[in-house]
Lab assay of single mutants.
Amino acid sequence: MATGGRRGAAAAPLLVAVAALLLGAAGHLYPGEVCPGMDIRNNLTRLHELENCSVIEGHLQILLMFKTRPEDFRDLSFPKLIMITDYLLLFRVYGLESLKDLFPNLTVIRGSRLFFNYALVIFEMVHLKELGLYNLMNITRGSVRIEKNNELCYLATIDWSRILDSVEDNYIVLNKDDNEECGDICPGTAKGKTNCPATVINGQFVERCWTHSHCQKVCPTICKSHGCTAEGLCCHSECLGNCSQPDDPTKCVACRNFYLDGRCVETCPPPYYHFQDWRCVNFSFCQDLHHKCKNSRRQGCHQYVIHNNKCIPECPSGYTMNSSNLLCTPCLGPCPKVCHLLEGEKTIDSVTSAQELRGCTVINGSLIINIRGGNNLAAELEANLGLIEEISGYLKIRRSYALVSLSFFRKLRLIRGETLEIGNYSFYALDNQNLRQLWDWSKHNLTITQGKLFFHYNPKLCLSEIHKMEEVSGTKGRQERNDIALKTNGDQASCENELLKFSYIRTSFDKI
């Protein structure tokens, strides 16, 4: 039985969820670079991206490699990797027998973001014989899940209580170790020597080791999670996991709180800001991140802002960003909400898709409305799209047979046209069989910064309504002859009103 693990408890099935942008060198404390989270699957090609990484700022997932063999891993080693800020997950990587050479110096898994409450997941690794993470000293947050690894031993010899604050939620089941077939031998045991430290858990006094050649490092209890030197002297209180010299914040392997210019500090002093819960960055760093993602459509890219001495992905609820200094300031009234469309555009074809934009005031991208039916549609669209004030790209209304009016965009005031449909149009209306009105132009103002209007096959939309939009939106004169079809717009509506004058002759039985 794995020490510190839980057996036999019912657990939810383990679901495996399925960018080499360097964020800056980590400095003297770390020998390499800070790398983003990685999802490495199918083959070993991307694994080489770990070569210079000291910190993975995010998670590391290595999974679904069915053609790899043990010899493929023999020359692979990433000794610079010290810390993973989120979680480490391995799933069905064939041929991998140990992690001792792959990650010989991995010391800390912070667990800032977890995989279903777990910071370390080893699942269905069919050839893994031992973990071998002999320098792993601290899992700051989260638990361990090690399950269905039929060859995995050296679990009962690990004292997880020396690595985690609590072992109650560890789930370590259905491994070879369960069948008591392992016969784990710690260093020196074969020669009758006791080389590794022994600890007591559940009444068992057991030597602690990761492999037959690597003991588990056990520091004096007084050192807590700070770690200790090879001689057993406690590291500085700002260290986490390990250090090369005692009581020196510049000799830590990793930091308990924050890293700044080669030393570990309790908090980031001005003019620095907390970033990702582990390091200090200056304003320029946060500003660069903001600008890199301002026009990016890459998933996970955030326009970072500053709030409460932190550089964070977005302002919290009730705050909006001051564009001059990136500071989050309290909103006066309802907060603006910028919604970034991942692929640059979004099609609204149902109430469900409209709900995804609920509360958005600025759309960074283009909207395509293609709704053919739905219950209580006008009210639903207004509830979900009615706060949109600005669209950076274009607005396209296409084959939306259920629409009679666009009044559900009740606050839309600006279409920038930074991206144009077919390279020309910022407003595009095609084949809307029941569209009769755009907006009530006596109450609604709309500016279209650039781009043209396109109207074709809107049989109940009168040309007068379209011409009014040209005047109000500032697009009059931009359109070419064929942009607004004269014969297919309003051709099934009563669009022309003329005053009919009647004269009559009164007659009676005795007068003409």
Rank of each mutant, 00 (worst) to 15 (best):
V108M: 14
G58L: 00
G95P: 00
S77M: 09
A198H: 15
L155I: 13
C252A: 00
D177H: 13
S98L: 00
L99V: 11
L152Q: 03
L128I: 08
V93T: 09
L260Q: 01
I158C: 03
K129N: 06
N42M: 08
L233H: 14
Y94F: 04
G183V: 09
T250C: 06
C234S: 03
N117C: 12
G262H: 06
E231K: 01
L88F: 08
S77G: 07
R145V: 11
T85P: 00
G300H: 10
C335P: 10
F285E: 08
L136Y: 01
L106R: 01
S244Y: 04
F283K: 15
D75M: 09
P269I: 13
D39Q: 15
L326V: 15
D261A: 12
S98H: 03
T267E: 07
N52L: 13
G300Y: 07
I139T: 01
G111H: 00
D184V: 10
E147P: 00
N117G: 10
Q245V: 10
L152P: 00
I172H: 11
E151S: 09
F91I: 11
V206Q: 15
L326Y: 01
F275L: 07
Y154A: 14
L289V: 13
L44M: 04
R69A: 13
K193A: 04
L155P: 04
Q303S: 04
N202K: 09
G37C: 03
R298P: 05
Y259D: 12
D169C: 09
F205P: 12
Y118K: 02
N149M: 00
P220F: 13
L155M: 14
Q276D: 13
N308C: 01
L114Q: 10
D165G: 11
I40T: 02
N195C: 04
G58V: 00
L174M: 07
V55T: 07
E97G: 13
G227Q: 14
S225E: 07
G132V: 01
P316E: 01
A119N: 02
E57A: 07
S213G: 13
I163L: 14
S296V: 06
F73L: 13
G203K: 13
S143K: 08
I146D: 00
D184G: 13
F258H: 06
F116I: 09
C235D: 00
Y118Q: 07
T107F: 03
I109D: 00
N309G: 08
E33T: 07
H48D: 14
C223R: 01
K310I: 07
C186A: 07
V108P: 00
N138E: 15
S98N: 07
Q287H: 15
T211G: 15
G188F: 14
S284I: 05
K67L: 05
V55R: 02
P70Y: 05
V206I: 02
F283W: 04
M321P: 15
C53L: 00
F258Y: 08
Y118P: 00
K310G: 03
L332R: 13
P36H: 04
I122K: 00
E151I: 03
K217D: 05
L47E: 01
T329E: 14
L233E: 11
P220W: 15
N325S: 15
C243F: 01
L50W: 06
K100T: 08
C35R: 01
K193T: 07
T157I: 04
E124K: 09
T320P: 03
T329N: 06
T85S: 10
Y134F: 04
N257Y: 06
C280E: 00
